[in-house]
Design a protein around this nucleic acid. Structure first.
Length: 1019
RNA sequence: GCCGGGGUGCCCGAGCCCGGAAAAGGGGGCGGGCUUAAGACCCGCUGGCGCAGGCCUGCGUGGGUUCAAAUCCCACCCCCGGCACCA
């Protein structure tokens, strides 16, 4: 086994060299041949390519290779996506880790020790790092644990020598390093990528291309400006996302509605933060924390009272805020404030459950709908100072849930028996119950709006707008209404806080002004996207709905960031175009970049007008050539290349990209290119698990291709990935599967070698066995072709590497049983099959197929051979039916032997129904096919064949309904002869059942045979 | 909550779109063969009943349509994934 894998590795090196020498993977414009342009999402080089990525690429490659054999001029290019921030964060973490490691003494030893802890205790790497640091008494370094984790991951899981890890402290060196590892992996796996066209997204010419794209989008009016909240490091003044935080936590941003309660007779406002603005109509009081410190902050001309923390946070969300005073929570207790929605006066009361670290530190109290508020009020009734006020407060119901009576919060609280605000867990559960019920089923009551003090006109307008509205809509409308008259605002908070940036600072929310958006919500753009999708083939088709939903759901999307690698926004260079926005139409760039580069066109000349000509055919060739100093011939060649290769015929990626990249891909093509250049197909595949487990960096169960190839062999990895799951579902890479695949390839090799050097003439007549085997194979050819057109690699490989192999083994065995062995006829048959079989394996295991092909004496490359076609004249339905029939008979004999508990049968007699019975069956089949019922058949058939046939006729009708297609057609043809089939394959049956058999036609006896159902006597 | 996917035999998993065979294929288990032994490999069994190829039950739960439903329709229960400025 080991030897065989080594052999597979060996031949992969050999053929990789040969193909490269022959430039097999380079595709150029060829007007004589139909083109096929395949692309897969390019990798982000923050790690070497692993098994998960290679599934997408292996599918793409098998498909590309298949299409090439089908006669297409296939282009499969690849590039690298350098845009973005994770690489920057990672390289900084590595830098930090290296300095710690150097500081600790011998870095490699430390890494080994950490790995040992991980292995021995079976804990994630992060835990092992922590444990190690504690062990050596360096708890002070715990803050940098995740940085160390990366280095361990690189060194141990990715098997990068420490000397090389040390070089990854600069973003670019890291990106280049991983890009080159990935490229090498792709080459090892034999992907037919045209590497001449490789680029990275920070190459100057690519940046010019993106610049053009954004000018286009801008001209079309799809780029907009607005404000946008982001997670932010307040010290380093930089946005923070998952990879920038300690412990890689994704900061989640939550938007609170602010409702401004003016303090009566004072120029001060209490900004209550709430997620349930619609309950403002039921506010009975406002809570502040009596022990907390509050600041008076001037916000947009009003004086807000905010908790100390909130006063700090708001600086990042509002412009020109000014702290002008300070007070204690207790200072404002008992004051009356005005509910801006209703105009009612309500008191300010103390509540210790109000957390000054969350939102504004001011909360409005709605006892009817918030369990906390209800219980807190009850609690307060005992208070010497505020007890009297608390007692006087009655919950005000403003939301009604059908099927319930009265306000929900008190009901639930009483039901659960909650008494004090200290029962936090119970209260939270109660809150969840009330909130979710009201959110799903609640409606805003008309009575709630009647509380609004004001002109009848105002109240009526509110009623018209919101009475009876479902909670989600009522909430939105209330918040909007309050904002419109200056009593409402927004406050952003980190929902899962506190989150710390990798610099150690607590992350806040910053509202960015002038953020640039792509407006995917634009109705015109949306309808273009819809049309593009409708015209496209989606594989598997079941994902279409998800695309449709995504198109509908997409709104504005921030398309630029303040930092990271990438292309500056052309009209506002402070911004860098974000990674998912600069990777939507880059496939077009593949069609021309090698032309422009090999001609030495300086990137700075690739101004928008140049791209307009190349990609849209706009402008005058000569004029542009002169204006930008680019040779006319080059421009023309680029234009022709684009025209030839575009549109993309097939776009491949993992299913995680449906909701973003793939849909943006559709949108942007629809916006920028004319309809005939819109993509034709999207192919989506599932993920890869390893031995049933999700791959994760923390578990360290990621296998980079470089490691996998050393362990297995390229063809094995390809085949396992292609065979282990249906396209849309998740695959599982298991060693067990690997060994099965290896064993099968070995067997296939042995079979192929049987016909090495065999030269025999086509025989005049085939045996039943030969005819069956050939016919089944021809159907395989047709089937595999169809399966590959539908990208069903699992089924296609199943036919080629499992079913066909087994059938071939069966054929060879049965030849032996018949005493024929590999005679001249069989040799011809086998050679016929093998030659085509090897070709069909080429898309999946190209190296293996190439080696076998040459072993058969061919001089051409199998990978560029034409795909086999279906040889109609070899289709023999009668032979297939005969074989199926014989197998059914064998099964029946075995069943009888088993049920009758016959230990060693001596002789078996098979009596076949007389020929004319077959006519009855034919008639029955005819009725079944026409959808006529049993009754109808019986009444007609009895007339025709007589009463005494009635019993048989009924049985035959039932048989007809369940007949396989093969047998049904054989019976219909009238050419199928049971005796002939049984006689010719007698030896096969005998070997299977272990007794001599005798075949004859029924001449009367105790068991009456039916057609296809002979009477069997076992002695 | 919204959107998407799914609940099939001891386990994993096809089949459901286009209704018509206890339900492909694995794995595990049991029995047998091979072997000094283990492994690998091969054969048989693996819902129930059945001394002749048969019958019964069955594909989340409950209804319905149909000569016929894992497959179509309705209601319900449960599980998984995504929910954005991140590649």
């Amino acid at each position: 086994m080991e030897d065989f894998v080594a052999y597979l590795r060996e031949i992969s090196k050999k053929w990789r060299r040969e193909w490269e020498k022959a430039h097999l993977h380079e595709a150029d414009v060829d007007p004589e041949r139909p083109k096929f342009f395949v692309t897969a999402a390019f990798p982000y080089p923050n790690s070497p390519m692993h098994l998960g990525h290679s599934r997408t690429y292996s599918i793409t490659d098998a498909y590309a290779r298949f299409k090439r054999m089908r006669g297409f001029n296939v282009l499969f290019p690849m590039g690298f996506h350098y845009t973005g921030t994770p690489i920057i964060a990672m390289s900084e973490k590595v830098k930090q880790a290296i300095s710690i490691l150097e500081d600790l003494g011998s870095p490699e030893e430390v890494i080994e020790k950490i790995w040992k802890i991980k292995e021995e205790k079976g804990v994630p790497i992060s835990k092992a790092v922590e444990e190690y640091l504690r062990e050596i008494g360096r708890e002070d370094l715990l803050d940098s644990a995740d940085a160390l984790e990366y280095v361990v991951l690189f060194a141990k899981v990715f098997e990068i020598p420490y000397e090389n890890v040390k070089k990854l402290t600069e973003p670019l060196s890291m990106a280049n390093y991983f890009a080159s590892l990935t490229e090498e992996g792709m080459k090892e796996l034999g992907y037919m990528i045209d590497w001449r066209r490789k680029f990275t997204t920070i190459d100057p010419d690519f940046q010019k291309f993106i610049t053009w794209q954004f000018y286009k989008l801008y001209e079309l009016g799809y780029v907009e400006r607005g404000t946008h909240p982001v997670a932010w490091d307040p010290v380093y003044n930089t946005p923070v996302s998952q990879h920038d935080t300690k412990g890689d936590v994704e900061p989640e941003i939550e938007e609170y509605d602010i409702i401004l309660f003016k303090i009566k007779d004072e120029d001060l406002y209490l900004p209550a933060a709430t997620l349930r603005a619609e309950t403002v109509f039921g506010v009975t009081n406002v809570w502040v924390n009596p022990d907390a410190t509050y600041k008076i902050v001037e916000v947009e001309g009003k004086k807000w009272i905010l908790s100390e923390k909130a006063a700090y946070k708001i600086k990042f969300q509002k412009e020109n805020t000014k702290e002008i005073g300070e007070l204690k929570g207790s200072d404002i207790l008992g004051k009356m404030v005005i509910n801006p929605a209703t105009g009612e006066e309500v008191p300010v009361l103390p509540a210790s459950f109000v957390d000054p670290n969350i939102a504004t530190g001011v909360v409005m109290s709605v006892p009817a709908h918030a369990p906390f508020d209800y219980v807190a009020l009850k609690e307060l009734e005992e208070d010497p100072e505020f007890g009297r006020i608390a007692k006087s407060i009655k919950p005000v119901q403003v939301i009604r849930v059908p099927g319930t009576d009265g306000p929900l919060a008190p009901t639930v609280v009483e039901k659960m028996g909650i008494r004090t605000t200290k029962e936090k867990e119970m209260l939270e559960e109660a809150t969840k119950e009330v909130y979710s019920l009201e959110y799903r089923k609640g409606r805003l009551m008309e009575e709630a709006l009647e509380r609004v003090k004001g002109e009848a006109r105002l109240v009526a307008a509110l009623k018209a707008l919101m009475a009876g509205e479902a909670v989600p809509q009522a909430r939105e409308k209330t918040a909007k209404w309050l904002k419109l008259f200056g009593a409402g605002d927004s406050f952003y908070e980190i929902k899962n806080g506190p989150v710390y940036s990798r610099f150690g600072n607590e992350v806040v929310v910053k509202v960015l002004k002038d953020q640039w958006f792509l407006n995917y919500g634009d109705p015109q753009w949306k309808s273009l996207a819809r049309r593009a999708l409708a015209k496209m083939r989606i594989v598997p088709e079941s994902f279409r709905k998800e695309f449709e939903n995504t198109i509908e759901w997409l709104q504005k999307r921030a398309c630029a960031r303040t930092r990271g690698l990438g292309t500056p926004l052309p009209w506002d260079k402070r911004w860098i175009i974000e990674s998912l926005s600069d990777s939507t139409i880059y496939m077009a760039f593949y069609t021309v970049d090698h032309i422009l580069r090999s001609a030495g066109v300086p990137p700075e000349r690739l101004e928008p007008e140049v791209w307009d000509y190349i990609l849209l055919g706009k402008g005058d060739l000569r004029e542009i050539s002169q204006k930008y100093g680019i040779d006319e011939k080059i421009l023309k060649a680029a234009r022709e290349s684009f025209e030839y290769w575009y549109p993309v015929d097939s776009r491949h990626s993992g299913k995680d990209l449906i909701k973003n990249h793939l849909t943006f891909f559709i949108f942007n093509h629809a916006a920028i290119f004319p309809e005939d250049k819109w993509p034709r197909q999207i192919v989506v595949n599932g993920f890869v698990n390893l031995e049933g487990k999700k791959m994760s960096k923390s578990l360290g169960n990621i296998i980079p291709i470089s490691v996998a190839v050393k362990q297995h062999a390229p063809d094995i990895i390809r085949l396992v990935l292609l065979h282990s799951a249906e396209l849309g579902t998740d695959a599982d890479f298991r060693t067990e599967m690997v060994s099965r695949v290896v064993a099968n390839l070995k067997e296939i090799k042995n079979i192929v070698e049987l016909v090495k050097g065999v030269e025999v003439k086509k025989p005049g007549r085939l045996g039943l066995l030969d005819a069956w085997y050939l016919s089944a194979f021809v159907k395989d050819v047709e089937n595999v072709t169809y399966l590959m057109e539908s990208l069903r690699t699992r089924e296609a490989t199943n036919v080629l590497y499992f079913i066909l192999l087994n059938r071939t083994k069966q054929y060879l065995q049965e030849l032996d049983a018949l005493g024929r062995g590999l005679d001249e006829v069989a040799k011809w048959v086998l050679k016929y099959v093998v030659e085509r079989w090897v070709k069909m394996m080429a898309p999946f295991t190209p190296y293996f197929a190439e080696e076998l092909w040459h072993g058969l004496g061919h001089k051409s490359f199998v990978v560029t051979e034409p795909w086999p076609s279906k040889d109609e004249e070899l289709v023999d339905p009668i032979a297939e039916a005969a074989k199926e029939y014989v197998e059914k008979v064998i099964e029946d004999i075995k069943e009888i032997i088993k049920v009758a508990k016959i230990s060693s049968p001596k002789k078996i007699r098979i009596e076949v129904a007389p020929k004319e019975q077959a006519d009855y069956l034919k008639a029955a089949i005819d009725y079944v096919k026409k959808g006529k019922g049993l009754k109808e058949f019986m009444s007609d058939a009895v007339k025709l064949y007589g009463k005494k046939a009635a019993k048989d006729l009924k049985a035959l009708y039932e048989m007809a309904t369940g007949l396989s297609e093969t047998l049904r057609e054989a019976v219909e043809s009238g050419r199928f002869d049971e005796v002939e089939a049984l006689t010719e394959l007698k030896a096969v049956i005998e070997r299977e059942v272990g007794a001599p058999i005798e075949v004859k036609v029924y001449e009367g006896g105790k068991k009456k045979p039916l057609p296809l159902k002979p009477a069997i006597y076992v002695e």
